[in-house]
Computed example of a mutant assay.
Amino acid sequence: MNRRWTPATALSLHAALTSCAERLTARGMPTGYYTVPDWDGYAPATGSASDVYCLDVALVPALRRPGHTLHALFQVFVPAQPNLGVFVLYDRRDSDGHPYQDPHWPRYSVRSDHTVAFSVLPEFDTVLAPLDPTGRGHSQRVDIWHGHANLPDHFAAPVTATTLLRNFRRRSQHAIIWVDYRVPAAELITRLTQAIIRAPHVHLIPRTGTPSGIRMPIRAADDTIVALANFSDALDDGIACALRYLRTGSDRDGQ
């Protein structure tokens, strides 16, 4: 065990993630749980290596990419803030478990959006809140939105956005933090929805031209660890924003 995680926190996190993986698998979404020791891929945002706790959820066959499956990856990586998680969707090659490294992918569908919004993300949130070191039951998730939605999904997007924007506080989140996306239409839909329902604390940080050094570990089919990368520094900014919320209860920079 990496000394940066206390034994009690590590045990609690292990139990929470194991239980979450079992629930998602029982609902027809095969979920792998694993720990990557002493991973330095988050050091650009955190300043040091640490053990990274991971859930990798198989969702549906990847759109327009035969031989791949759409996966949801969730990771906890800051020992001082075990109630912080990062989430991303990616296309995973069925033959060897390697991620497809392109920020233009994956492609989203109404089915995948519904599964993520109503089944996967609520489960992830149940993991984080009980681990709040202050005991207040708060948590924060940073969501990376690479890829594009297909045409029918654009029509369903307002419903999904409304659900997420209305429910994040009920699920213990301080804020919505969505980063590294490339689709102006998605941001427009979200901001219009935010204005209509008057949702506070929404941080939309689009992809920039500056690469990030962050690398997310993924366990391949042969149990080796490969990295999902190709992020911009929007991800670094999103993690910094999340840490401010968890440490102070607000974003001191405001938005």
Rank of each mutant, 00 (worst) to 15 (best):
R136L: 09
V159W: 15
A26Y: 00
W105N: 09
C241Y: 11
Q173C: 00
H138D: 03
F118P: 01
I239D: 07
L121Q: 15
L89R: 07
R3C: 00
G213A: 05
L164E: 14
R111A: 15
D51G: 07
A221F: 02
I176Q: 08
P200R: 01
S19A: 15
P122I: 03
Y33M: 09
P30H: 09
N230D: 14
A72C: 07
A195R: 15
D94H: 02
V127W: 04
V179M: 03
P130Q: 07
A186I: 10
L131C: 10
V226C: 02
H114C: 06
D113S: 13
V116Q: 03
A26F: 01
D233Y: 07
L165V: 10
E187F: 02
L13A: 05
T163L: 03
A72T: 04
Y53C: 08
T6N: 10
N2T: 03
P158E: 12
A227D: 14
D113T: 12
S232T: 14
H148F: 14
T25A: 10
R23C: 03
G97N: 05
C20E: 12
A199V: 07
D251N: 15
N83F: 05
R191H: 00
S212A: 01
L235C: 09
R23Q: 12
D132M: 08
H71V: 00
A62N: 07
V88M: 05
Q173D: 00
F77D: 03
H14C: 02
D96E: 06
I197T: 03
H98S: 05
C20W: 05
R136Y: 03
I176V: 13
L246F: 12
R3A: 08
V159A: 14
T18S: 13
D236K: 01
R111G: 05
